[in-house]
Amino acid sequence: MAGMLELKNLNKNFDAVHVINDFSLEVFENSLCCLVGPNGAGKTTTLDLITGRQAPSSGKIILNGVDITGKAEQAICRLGIGRKFQIPAIFRELSVEQNLAVAHSIEINPIKNIFSFSSKNYKTKMDEIADKVGLSHRLPEMAGNLSHGEIQWLEIGMLLMQDAPLLLLDEPVAGMTEGEVSKTVDILNELKKIKTLIVVEHDMGFVRRIADVVTVMHMGSLLAKGSIEQIEKNQEVRNVYLGTEDE
């Protein structure tokens, strides 16, 4: 069985610097794959390549059998990939409710959207998702006024409104308190029953609580892949994380 998302021999150079080096990865449906690695390993760049923010120098990206290499961001997004950014990207001047409404991007035709005034047809969905990410009581609040954790959840909520089957999350728990991390773990474990997720993360404690598969990147290439137990025993990974290079 072919994976939902396949990366084949990706390469990315910025001038002479090889950021991604012959990196291949396969992600299967309804699983949660964690992408870990030290700083500068190329994790975020990999997400950039998948979502079309940058074009790979060579290699192929295949989503559900369709080659999406080098397509525009919004086109890739329409094929079913949602992305949460490392620095949370939400619409700060809009209310939480409006953020979710914008994320409901079923209809992208601007002309049709000019004549659309009602949120009736997605109101139920919006309430459900707000509930799932724990923001039901914050709907009328300006998104810029939310706490850091709430902003992260709002962004996850927006991905759910967008309804993409494949979600890429870049450091979803960065800067969260322990309580907030636990809540995020619950949200993600709930999500992976219905979605496919790729999570970029540093925090191995967090990874242990959510990952089905862990992929370790180092210097832009694949270092190891396996379950969390296998990874934690892997000597090479230990060297990279604990040995000569520091985090």
Binding site: T51, E73, Q74, C77, R78, G82, R83, F85, A89, I90, F91, R92, E93, L94, V102, A103, S105, I108, M158, Q162
Partner: peptide
């Protein structure tokens, strides 16, 4: 507010 985010929502 954020053109990039909007683009990544498919618009």
């Amino acid at each position: 507010n954020d053109p990039e985010r909007t683009r990544f929502l498919g618009y």
